[in-house]
């Protein structure tokens, strides 16, 4: 009886130890993402980071959600532009980025006419003009959605110094690896600030007026 009880206590101790040890296991994805955000080198006075080499938007005529040609570099002359390369089936980062920008625009003093927010799909196979139109409208009707042939999109992304999109899983429900930062361009179509994933609504509200003023100092 005594031996059974001792064995029982040991089992209980083991269970408790398992819980504690198991609970120590960090959630790798989360830890990595937070670390990346915290160690990012921010531009002084901004919530984004400097873009290496300040690349210019490559010449490329895209197609907008209405099926019309859209010269993004030419459009950038009219107003500062935020560009994000994502895809509508993106399960995590894309909707969070777009929702946060849309929410920040709602509460900031910046008007839609002062800033162009552009979503360029890296998955033109699935993201037709109709799909794109519905997708961006679900965040903000003023957002611009663009598509081009896969090779053209890959070239634009690469020339901007970003990693080229990668199709990560096979089948119809594939996911696409793509740059997670939003690039802010000035009226000369030069990328000035990159906003990594993790930029919060309150930070967008701080930076949007500065982007509109092109207050790069």
């Amino acid at each position: 009886m005594g031996i059974r009880m001792a064995a029982f206590s040991r089992i209980q101790l083991l269970l408790v130890a398992l819980v504690v040890v198991a609970a120590c296991t960090p959630t790798t994805t989360t830890a990595t993402l937070h670390a990346a955000q915290d160690t990012a080198d921010r531009l002084p006075g901004w919530n984004g980071v400097a873009v290496d080499g300040a690349p210019r938007m490559p010449a490329q005529v895209f197609t907008d959600a209405d099926g019309r040609p859209y010269d993004l570099r030419a459009a950038m002359r009219e107003r500062p532009t935020l560009v994000y390369f994502g895809y509508t089936s993106c399960p995590d980062i894309c909707p969070v980025h777009l929702a946060n920008i849309a929410a920040a625009l709602d509460v900031s003093s910046v008007r839609d006419s002062q800033l162009n927010v552009v979503f360029v799909t890296v998955d033109p196979r699935r993201d037709t003009t109709e799909v794109l139109a519905d997708y961006v409208a679900s965040f903000d009707a003023s957002f611009t959605a663009l598509r081009a042939a896969q090779g053209d999109v890959d070239r634009v992304v690469t020339e901007l110094g970003l990693p080229a999109p990668v199709i990560e899983q096979g089948g119809d429900n594939y996911t696409v690896g793509h740059p997670s930062q939003v690039l802010a361009f000035d009226r000369d179509a030069t990328a000035r600030v990159a906003y990594p994933f993790g930029t919060r609504q309150s930070q967008w509200v701080e930076d949007l007026p500065k982007l509109v003023r092109e207050d790069w100092s």
């Binding site: 509460v107 919060r200 509200v205």
Partner: peptide
């Protein structure tokens, strides 16, 4: 609050697309 207070919930993938963080 005008903004989401928690980074965790603000940056989490959406469970309900129409339900924003605020």
């Amino acid at each position: 609050s005008r903004f989401p207070l928690y980074r965790l919930y603000e940056l989490a993938p959406r469970v309900v697309p129409s339900l924003d963080a605020v």
